[in-house]
Design a protein around this nucleic acid. Structure first.
Lengths: 197, 197
DNA sequence: GTCTATAGTAGGATAGAC
DNA sequence: GTCTATCCTACTATAGAC
């Protein structure tokens, strides 16, 4: 039986995770030192190690919060009738993502570090696979309902088109992060104008 | 007057840069230690510091070699008659990139670290701006020649379409790096099938 | 130019008081 | 649970011999 309430522990972890995220945005996940997380949180080393066993655990927890569940947005999308056209899906995903993580460049940092950190890699892979699965199902249903295409053919079309929808989202994040003159509205308008429906 | 020939110095720098790149692929640019670069090169600390003033200088030099000049491929493309359609450009860029950097996931690592390292950021920005400029000119000319569109309108079309072409390349790199079942040929076929011409 | 050895520092994590 | 103080490892870079 812990002396403090469970809500208190959760709230403290949230506090630490949010402070760590602010620090990670500045220097990246690996390159941020515990000293920076400690300073940003306003707590002490001992306090933090009372809630996380290691810096690696903080990294994984924060990264998990960052990728969150974009899947929810897709479920909402799939419940609409009439269905929104596939090229409008990136806008929905990006809007949800922006609301949740703010500056998306932290996602680019996460992807980059996922190349060499197995735990982050597994996390990113899991999210992309879920996203791809949900998107593929959505696009297939859209073709069936909109054009009366047979299931098998709709699945093939979806498998062809979904990687491009994913690239549209990834390209947004990358170009937002790197180009000082990136225009989000123009970008999304182009996606909706030119990607296949 | 140095005692050794200039070619010798250049060859040694190449050797060190290549060893460093092999190490960076495993752990990322910042997280790789000098000890790992030293071991990978088979040289000693003293030898390496005789050719580079700091680890940061090695990082910048290697990163510069990695992004290289994809612009050359675009120039070759623009010299053809008839011009290749815009959706085939990602294939050309990616083929050149694969030949030069091999495993493209090192590019994703570079992009991620560019978010927080100003020198890498400037490097990546410069390359993307050059690429965007060359691509935009190419696509504009293509519309003028192929459809007889006026210059002003062709420029507008190019400005709309080029971000998607860039996303196609970036999405390739990302999906190649993360998805174990990524199919490069199918991806490029989709790009050519669905992106606007 | 290249080596070995090491100086000097910053890092993650823990001990013990409260 | 949280703090301060500190241990110990690993890092970048240099010194001095060859």
């Amino acid at each position: 039986m812990p002396k403090v309430t469970e809500e208190y522990r959760v709230a403290r972890r949230d506090e630490i995770a949010e402070a760590a995220l602010r620090a990670f945005r500045r220097k990246g996940f690996q390159a941020t030192s515990m000293a920076e997380i400690i300073a940003e949180s306003g707590l002490s080393a001992g306090a933090i190690y009372g809630h996380y066993p290691s810096k690696a655990a903080i990294v994984v927890d924060v990264a998990t919060r960052v990728v969150g569940s974009r899947i929810v947005d897709l479920r909402n999308l799939a419940d609409q009738d009439p269905l929104a056209a596939p090229p409008t899906v990136p806008r929905t995903l990006i809007t949800g993502m922006r609301r949740e993580v703010g500056d998306p460049s932290v996602l680019l940092q996460l992807w980059g570090e996922a190349v060499t950190e197995p735990e982050l890699r597994a996390l990113v892979l899991d999210v992309i696979l879920q996203l791809r699965g949900a998107l593929t199902a959505y696009v297939s249903v859209w073709h069936q309902r909109t054009y009366g295409v047979a299931v098998e053919e709709a699945d093939i079309l979806a498998a062809e088109q979904v990687p491009l929808l994913i690239s549209a989202v990834q390209g947004y994040v990358l170009q937002w992060s790197v180009l000082p003159d990136f225009d989000p509205d123009a970008y999304l308008a182009s996606v909706e104008k030119y990607l296949p429906r």
